[in-house]
């Protein structure tokens, strides 16, 4: 990596300076991590980009076909549906996660009995393997024996079971609900950590100046929390956008591709479908969206630094 750049011969005692300096030990210490990341992260990224330009299938080496995969995707209505689904899924789920997570964080920031207990159990959905909790949701969303349908029928709100995963609108709503369920703890606990760095004296000062609770939240809490919100939401958006597990367990992209995300479509075309080249092209098409999300949060953070009088 960059550590190599210093090894240009500057003085006759090159070996001596290498042994005594910081660069050789630094390089040696970096070696294991660099080997892993170059071999299984940087190299696959390159291979993935290259595969996107070939017609490789499982068990058959491909040849370079230029932009053909991307041209095929451009006129593929299922691909565009998956792009739409991914954007819908990410935006709705992220907004809900943010709103509910912030609300939960504000509640947990109050003086409550058994606070550490609540904090501990609230993080559980995030600790348990997603696939296993998704299987529980699969059972909760069963078309005949859903416990939600049962409760609603018992209260007389509906008269027949809801077909949660069988109808495109309700399937979208169901997978978003499951994703929000899993994502709230992360947002809430991270924002709680941010809230606890805000001194209560600021709130008291605002209160003495006659600020209403809403004004205290809007003009004291929220601005103080902005940097951590930017980071938490970047992570949240990134991981929602590239989500695979929940959809794969709950709907496998159905009904009629209504819940196919780009990641699940890429898997379906690439692994069971055997079209590695096309799958890789779909995966590569996610990169611009991810970069946009990272840039958005990066510049959001910089603005914050500048406001606080720090240097960029």
């Amino acid at each position: 990596m960059t550590a190599l750049s210093r090894t240009t011969p500057a003085s006759p005692s090159l070996l001596h300076s290498l042994g005594q300096g910081k660069n050789l030990p630094g390089l040696l210490f970096m070696l294991p991590a660099a080997a892993f990341l170059l071999c299984f992260l940087a190299y696959p990224l390159g291979v993935g980009t290259w595969l996107g330009f070939t017609d490789t299938r499982i068990g058959r080496a491909g040849v370079f076909i230029g932009l053909e995969n991307y041209e095929a995707l451009w006129s593929d209505s299922v691909f565009w549906l998956s792009v739409f689904n991914t954007i819908l899924y990410t935006s709705v789920a992220s907004v809900l996660k943010f709103a509910l997570g912030l609300w939960l964080a504000l509640i947990l920031n109050e003086n409550l009995p058994f606070k550490s207990f609540f904090r501990a159990v609230i993080l559980l959905p995030w600790v348990v393997p997603t696939v296993l909790s998704a299987i529980a949701f699969w059972w909760i969303f069963d078309s005949q024996f859903s416990v939600i349908s049962w409760a609603l029928m018992k209260w007389g709100w509906i008269d027949k079971p809801i077909n949660f995963l069988g109808d495109s609108t309700s399937a979208r709503a169901s997978v978003i609900a499951a994703n929000v369920w899993r994502g709230i703890p992360f947002v809430a606990i991270s924002l709680l950590a941010g809230l606890q760095t805000i001194s209560p004296s600021l709130q008291e000062a605002a209160s003495l100046d006659g600020a209403t609770p809403w004004q205290r939240f809007r003009y004291v809490t929220l601005p103080m929390l902005t940097p951590i919100i930017a980071v938490v939401m970047t992570f949240s958006v990134l991981f929602t956008f590239t989500d695979f597990q929940l959809i794969y367990v709950l709907t496998k992209g159905g009904p009629v591709n209504a819940t196919h995300l780009m990641a699940t479509l890429s898997f379906q075309r690439g692994i069971p479908g055997g079209q590695l080249g096309e799958g890789a092209a779909i995966a590569v098409s996610m990169v611009p969206f991810l970069l946009a999300a990272i840039m958005f949060s990066f510049f959001g953070l910089q603005r914050r630094k500048w406001q606080q009088g720090g240097n960029d």
Binding site: F40, L41, Y43, P44, L45, G46, V47, G48, L51, T56, L238, F239, F241, T242, D243, F244, A263, S266, F267, G270, I271, L276, G279, A280, A283, V284, M286, V287, L290
Partner: peptide, 12 residues
């Protein structure tokens, strides 16, 4: 994210 790496990784 792993979901953009799994196809090339499978290849490797």
């Amino acid at each position: 994210p792993p979901s953009i790496l799994f196809i090339p990784l499978a290849f490797i």
